[in-house]
Amino acid sequence: MEIKAWQIAQLINGKVVGDDNAVITGPSKIEEGKPGTITFLANPKYKDYIYTTQASVVLVSNDFKPEHEISTTLIQVDNVYLALSQLMEQFNSGISVRPQVASTAVVDDSVIFGDNVAVDDYVIIKPGVTIGNNTKIYGQVYIGDRVKIGADVTIYPGVKIYHNCEIGDRCVIHANAVIGSDGFGFVRDDKGNYKKIHQIGNVVIQNDVEIGSNTVIDRGSMGSTVIGAGVKLDNLIQIAHNVHIGNNTAIAAQAGIAGSTSVGKDCIIGGQVGIVGHIQIADGTMIQAQSGVASTIKKDGTKLYGSPAIEYQNYLKSYAWFKKLPELVAQLQALQNALDDVANSR
């Protein structure tokens, strides 16, 4: 693919500063830029690279002011990351799959396909499944009985979707994710042995959700586990039975949410966060990585940090004192010794 700087500027509503006809064949990182590539500067920590990069074009924000001479062409935009997202879509070739059902796929006769559906090699689709228009299903995917999948969905290799689950339109499910596995439900009998509580609910994933590789979303014990519209889940996340995640919430890798917890809309949850079961997290809550949330958060827009998590600024103040704890202990000990000396001198 070849595209010129002025064409890129039109695509992302930017302004060219430099060579309008600079030819771009692909993207690069700013510190590894090569002629013929386009890169970006959004994080100030990388600003020195803009003076040395060999990339032909660099995306910058409208308020960027160079401190030295720049040899590369710039495209100024309002939001660098948003422009980058639009641009990368043009360079994304993806994994190839033909718009047909592969001869090696095992598909029940009752399955209902929309138009232009692609089913790759060794896919298994069970009875009663419906699949919407333009959906792509890559190799070795398993789709259980009575699953409903919307239009323009992409399901990458190795995904497993258990029976009765529902996937909305324009969702992306990355390799080896599991949707609808049993929740962690057991009860001890009078002999102390664990007896399984069968999980008879399902998972409902609404429109425009993206789910990372090896993420697991358990089915409801009764009712549904619900992932709201626009939610973005990173890799290696555990979502337990009957959890509800509100629209446009983003959760980073290795987070875990225990059963029957409700997470509000527009929340941002960092990596390795743990959230206990049966609580509510208010809309717009932000939780720093590796925090542990053990109680309901009622106030919208709360910022949390620590384990157990407390208000973000309070945590920073507390930690500042915690780092000085050995010094403070030494000072207290010195005071105690001084008081002992005074007492002993009487």
Rank of each mutant, 00 (worst) to 15 (best):
Trp6Lys: 14
Gln7Thr: 06
Ile12Arg: 15
Gly18Met: 07
Phe40Pro: 10
Phe40Ser: 04
Asn43Val: 12
Gln54Lys: 12
Val60Thr: 15
Ser61Asn: 13
Pro66Leu: 05
Ala83Met: 02
Gln86Cys: 06
Glu89Met: 01
Glu89Tyr: 07
Glu89Lys: 10
Ser93Lys: 13
Pro99Ile: 05
Pro99Asn: 14
Asp109Met: 01
Gly114Cys: 03
Asp121Ile: 06
Tyr138Ala: 12
Gly139Leu: 09
Tyr142Ser: 03
Tyr142Leu: 13
Ile149Trp: 03
His163Val: 00
Asn164Ile: 07
Glu166Asp: 07
Ile173Thr: 06
Gly180Arg: 00
Asp182Thr: 08
Phe186Lys: 00
Asp189Glu: 15
Asp190Val: 07
Lys191Trp: 12
Tyr194Asn: 10
Lys196Thr: 08
Ile197Tyr: 11
His198Ile: 10
Met222Cys: 09
Val231Lys: 08
Ile237Val: 08
Asn242Phe: 04
Gly259His: 00
Val263Met: 14
Lys265Phe: 01
Gly271Leu: 04
Val276Tyr: 11
Ala282Lys: 07
Ala282Met: 03
Asp283Ser: 04
Lys299Pro: 14
Asp300Phe: 12
Gly301Met: 00
Lys303Leu: 00
Lys303Glu: 05
Ser307Glu: 14
Ser307Pro: 06
Tyr319Ile: 00
Ala320Asn: 02
Pro326Ile: 07
Asn344Met: 12
